[in-house]
Design a protein around this nucleic acid. Structure first.
Lengths: 137, 137
DNA sequence: CTAACTGCAAAGTTTTTGCAATTGC
DNA sequence: GCAATTGCAAAAACTTTGCAGTTAG
């Protein structure tokens, strides 16, 4: 899929703006939220451009794409290892600050004030079959 | 949101079928996959019914709704604590067997044969504000 | 110059919903 | 009998794409 993207990127005001917005917020915005924010600086920017650039930035590895069970994708400009708490009632998503990878649910509750119901751990990488086809990945 | 669902559930053949399908597979199917499978047993079932029941089952806590960065939701009938590996190239998702919550990426690579790029840890629960409004959650 | 990028609008995908008929309790 | 559920089809929500014009290198 997109990982094999060989095309040479050219800089663009639109892409810089989008990346700037993403890096300057602590929320984990949706494409639409980013679009609304971007329009304040660049009124003619289009939603299609926002989507295209979010996909490019994700493919470059400059941002992380997240999906939290509600249908819309969310984006995170912070690439450091950090974890999330999600409210199953209102759907908000926050970072968990200063967490050790071995923290227990109890510790998370103390740190965040959330009542934790469950957690999810997901590893991303390349499966053996795909690795065989494109060993560069 | 839906968590405050007080309505009394009535049993239905359709819902039982959907739950049965989900519990008898090891893949993490999309709504459409479940729909196709269900049609073989019950040719008149509609896609709308599949979606409605998946949402009901999720609200009841009988299944887990997952989202892996590709746009479609996926569902998991296994509620025990277990983790996932996802291939960023082909998009497939597998369970990680017998994993300790403290396993390292290296251990995951040995267990699964995947080349691990990153991981994601997400806690779900109720945020302080929502807990205040509906302490039952 | 030329390939990447853009805005716009149309199309594609996935999910939800309104409605009249049916079903479980 | 009544409220929950269903099938169907239409609508909504989210994302991608085709195209002609613009821009960065």
């Amino acid at each position: 899929m997109e990982v094999t993207n060989q095309r040479k990127l050219k800089s663009s005001r639109q892409r810089d703006l989008i990346l700037g917005i993403l890096r300057s917020t602590h929320c984990h915005p949706t494409a639409d939220w980013i679009y609304e924010k971007a329009r304040k600086e660049m009124p003619n920017i289009s939603l299609g451009t926002v989507y295209r650039n979010l996909n490019l930035l994700r493919d470059e590895g400059k941002i992380q794409e997240l999906c939290f069970g509600r249908n819309m994708n969310r984006y995170d400009g912070d690439l450091r290892d950090h974890y999330h708490v999600r409210c199953v009632v209102c759907g908000c998503v926050e970072d968990v600050p200063h967490i050790s990878p071995r923290a227990s649910s109890g510790e998370i509750e103390k740190l965040t004030g959330y009542k934790i119901h469950s957690h999810r751990l997901e590893f991303s990488g390349v499966c053996p079959a795909c690795h065989k086809n494109a060993p560069s990945e």
